[in-house]
């Protein structure tokens, strides 16, 4: 800051506090709503202070779910989300590390072709090829399975490029020294490249876990069995009740809080890795 302006500072704090309040507002309302009994929602506008039904609402949602809306218990949906997010994250990291290693440390015919093939995936998000991708997964018998939920999403151009860029910055001498000591490619990969990449892997892990956890369209398409409902799409099902019936907002909001908590905690506790992952994947 260049000059000292007490009034300017005051105004700045006011702007920031109202910004933070606006950003927090929807989540505050959700938390409040999840602590009231069902009756509160019949009486017109929602109260702004916490109620006393929090334990009941969360326990009911966790253990039983919302049977009338066809929703399984929250623990199962959270578990499904966790398995899907971890499978997508680990799959993406695994195949991207291997392909970046191949592209940087080997010379072979069609290297450039493969590089562009991977690049093209950037231009083909699921959203633009919904029906044919669904047909492929259906033909392979992967509907209603964790394999179907995760494998089609694990190709990753961004992760491959990030690792490629990072590998290019590793000094040539590393490889020369390793080769003189007689290390083969796989040993070099495991004992030198992987340990050096730990920070990058962790940063990408944070970003991709959030990406995986928040998947919506894909699980919606390929799972019909409630045993595979993930929490993010489960919430949509709970809100879309038939006809004039209103959703059980207190339970829906309890589910919303539980669905948002894991990725938010990941960001709060790994903020530095998150920022690193976010800014580097977009370069």
């Amino acid at each position: 800051m260049v000059e000292n302006r007490p009034l300017g500072n005051l105004a700045a704090h006011l702007i920031l506090i109202s910004g933070v309040a606006l950003v927090l507002f929807p989540v505050y309302i959700a938390i409040i709503a999840s602590t009231h009994g069902p009756g509160e929602f019949m009486r017109g506008v929602l109260p702004l202070t916490p109620g006393d039904q929090a334990v009941e609402n969360y326990r009911l949602m966790w253990e039983a779910g919302l049977a009338k809306a066809g929703s399984p218990p929250a623990w199962r949906m959270l578990w499904n989300s966790l398995v899907m997010a971890l499978a997508i994250t680990i799959g993406k990291l695994f195949i991207s590390l291997l392909s970046a290693f191949a592209i940087v440390y080997f010379r072979f015919p069609f290297r450039l072709f493969f590089f562009w093939l991977i690049f093209i995936t950037l231009m083909l998000p699921v959203e633009v090829r919904i029906i044919p991708t669904f047909q492929v997964v259906a033909d392979l018998g992967m509907l209603n399975s964790f394999a179907g939920l995760s494998i089609p999403l694990i190709a990753s151009a961004t992760a491959t490029f990030l690792f490629r860029q990072f590998f290019m910055t590793i000094p040539e001498e590393m490889l020369e020294a390793a080769r003189i000591d007689g290390a083969g490619p796989l040993k070099f990969f495991r004992d030198i490249l992987l340990p050096l990449s730990v920070t990058n892997i962790a940063a990408l892990f944070v970003i991709m876990f959030i990406y995986g956890w928040n998947q919506y369209l894909w699980p919606l398409l390929i799972t019909t069995d409630p045993d595979y409902t993930t929490i993010v799409m489960g919430i949509q099902r709970m809100t879309s009740t038939s006809g004039d019936e209103t959703p059980d907002w207190n339970l829906v909001m309890a589910a919303v809080v539980m669905a948002a908590l894991p990725p938010v905690l990941v960001i709060l506790f790994m903020q530095r890795l998150f920022v690193k992952g976010l800014t580097e994947t977009e370069k």
């Binding site: 093939l117 991977i118 995936t121 083909l124 991708t133 492929v136 089609p152 190709a155």
Partner: peptide
Amino acid sequence: PQVIVTLIFFIWPA
């Protein structure tokens, strides 16, 4: 692995 996933789930559907 990367190429197989790309071909089956990206290029073929496109």
